[in-house]
Design a protein around this nucleic acid. Structure first.
Length: 548
DNA sequence: GCTTGGACTTGCCCTCAGTACC
DNA sequence: GGTACTGAGGGCAAGTCCAAGC
């Protein structure tokens, strides 16, 4: 590590939860006020035009903007929306508008579509003006001073009002997410800083000076009653240091994971049910990189589970399947309602335990009825300081990347082939962590385009050969062709897999940096600008023989 | 002990700006 | 100069984990 950066990353380590000594910022940027519809754009009820009050009109526009989305046809969405919309209506409106099916938002919808077209068709100068305004806003509100550093803020804009969507089958979809006003805002900054000023004629809910937290601004959202925060960018000292710490914890797990595994295997035989359950759950978390699985309040969110909250209905046991013994089939919705489907052969003891846990239970009963995340994490804490369920995900992701890179990279490959290998290693991790994505809408098209390019290049090479200009044109051309073909392979393999999440959250960046240095790959090929900023600590720290 | 609230990380999707291409 | 395409970044929901409050 260089001396200068050692200072940057190691300065001012506070104790007892103190996160900073000085914090100054300009507060949040509020959503722009509602702009009423022009009088020629009408809402129709039961076929007749109807002028809405400003409040009711605003909420109606939220719905009108979404008309093309499938979810506006869903019962739950419509019911929730209508209920909340009615709350914004005057008593006259309420009396008249009693059936959402009689509401016609299509003219409003057309208007917004036209507006968005108009925005696209703006002249260069107009676009430039908007860009400059955004830059000005960023400069004024996008930075803060935390201790001795000017730091970028991650999200300085307050979320605008709209209709809540949620992910998966969310019981609250369609509800009104209300507008946040200065009176809802808690500002956090240091006493000796220049406090942010609320917009003229308004007041903050509170100005606080809590240096044991990292947030600058908070408010409570009305859908779940959860607190939302404005915090610093991942490039900031405070986030970087935390990130580094996270990977150091995972590396400590590496040192004791063998004995820990031996321990939970022993526990599969325990006399106590709770210990067996704990041990099997931990095995899943370790082997399959499952999330912890906190309990959730029923009816408040989509029905999703993690390891500790698995239910009997989420797995099938096969003493034998496809020529393998003791196969467990998992099928459940995890975080963000992403499906986890996997068939895994497990050890006989695990299998027998699972049979035991499922005995005399209904499909909707908890698989691990003597376990929850609190119990599990308490246990883990006793095994290693700072150990929690999610450390296993970080550890297994990072160690997998390191192993895969070792296995897949060959010295004689060129740079683009090496990058393909890197992406494949990254992909192995994404698959382990079940990081999926919807195939991009333009996927087929973009594959086609690439194929066209490849064909053209082949043609070009063939021409060159025919004209006996081999020596002159072939070497570079061949290289280019290979690059395109590698790119096509990479893209195809990536169709339904998202690499970003693991890259950003699970893979110790020092592994990647070390790999780049070892093979002479510019780090820019692996990390874009933002990622390099986020991982500045690692880029500076890791040399080519860094070992996770 | 249990519940709830709070802080912070993780996660997917969409938009939009920058760039390649014609 | 216009259009098409793509990657980056923003947006914000949904997790994890811990500790305060009862």
């Amino acid at each position: 590590m260089s001396v200068i950066m050692a200072v940057r990353w190691e300065e001012e380590r506070y104790t007892d939860g103190v996160k900073w000594k000085f914090l100054e910022h300009k507060g949040p940027v509020f959503a722009p006020p509602y702009e009423p519809l022009p009088s020629n754009v009408k809402f129709y009820y039961d076929g007749r035009p109807m002028k809405l009050s400003l409040e009711a009109e605003e909420v109606a526009t939220f719905f009108a903007k979404m008309l093309d989305h499938e979810y506006t046809t869903k019962d739950v969405f419509r019911k929730n929306f209508f209920k909340d919309w009615r709350k914004e209506m005057t008593s006259e409106e309420k009396a008249k508008i009693t059936d959402l099916n009689k509401c016609d938002f299509s003219e409003m919808n057309e208007y917004f579509k036209a507006q968005s077209e108009a925005r696209k068709a703006m002249t260069k100068q107009e676009k430039q003006k908007i860009k400059e305004e955004n830059e000005r806003l960023l400069l004024e509100y996008g930075y803060c001073v935390m201790d001795n550093h000017r730091e970028r803020i991650a999200n300085f804009r307050i979320e605008p009002p709209g209709l809540f969507r949620g992910r998966g089958d969310h019981p609250k979809m369609g509800m009104l997410k209300r507008r946040i006003r200065p009176e809802d805002i808690i500002v956090n900054c240091s006493k000796d800083s220049e406090h942010p000023k609320p917009p003229p004629g308004t007041k903050w809910k509170e100005v606080r000076h809590d240096n044991k937290v990292t947030w600058l601004v908070s408010w409570t959202e009305n859908i779940q009653g959860a607190i939302k925060y404005i915090m610093l960018n991942p490039s900031s000292r405070i986030k970087g240091e935390k990130d580094w710490q996270k990977y150091e914890t995972a590396r400590r797990l590496k040192k004791c994971v063998d004995s820990l595994r031996a321990q939970y295997r022993e526990d599969w035989k325990s006399k106590e049910m709770r210990i067996r359950q704990r041990a099997v759950a931990l095995y899943f978390i370790d082997k399959l990189a499952l999330r912890a699985g906190n309990e959730k309040e029923e009816g408040e969110t989509a029905d999703t589970v993690g390891c500790c909250s698995l239910r009997v209905e989420h797995l099938n046991l096969y003493p034998e399947k496809d020529g393998q013994e003791y196969v467990v089939e998992f099928d459940f919705l995890g975080k963000d309602s992403i499906r986890y489907y996997n068939k895994v052969p497990v050890e006989k003891r695990v299998f027998k335990n699972l049979q035991l846990f499922m005995e005399n239970k209904q499909p909707e009963d908890d698989l691990f009825d003597r376990l929850n995340t609190t119990i599990l994490n308490k246990h883990l804490q006793e095994l290693m300081d700072g150990l929690t369920a999610k450390v296993f995900r970080t550890y297994n992701a990072s160690i997998t990347l390191q192993q895969q890179l070792k296995e897949l990279t060959s010295a004689e490959e060129n740079v683009s082939a090496k990058i393909l290998s890197y992406n494949r290693a990254n992909r192995a991790v994404a698959i382990l962590c079940n990081h999926q994505r919807a195939p991009p809408k333009t996927f087929e098209k973009s594959m086609q385009n690439l194929q066209t390019k490849i064909d053209a290049k082949k043609e070009q090479l063939a021409d060159a050969k025919r004209e006996l200009k081999i020596r002159k044109y072939l070497p570079g051309g061949k290289e280019q062709l290979m690059k395109l073909e590698v790119q096509a392979t990479d893209r195809e393999e990536n169709k339904q897999i998202a690499l970003g999440t693991s890259k950003l959250n699970y893979l110790d960046p020092r592994i990647s940096v070390a790999w780049c240095k070892k093979w002479g790959i510019p780090v820019e090929k692996i990390y874009n600008k933002t990622q390099r900023e986020k991982f500045a600590w690692a880029i500076d720290m890791a040399d080519e023989d860094f070992e996770f």
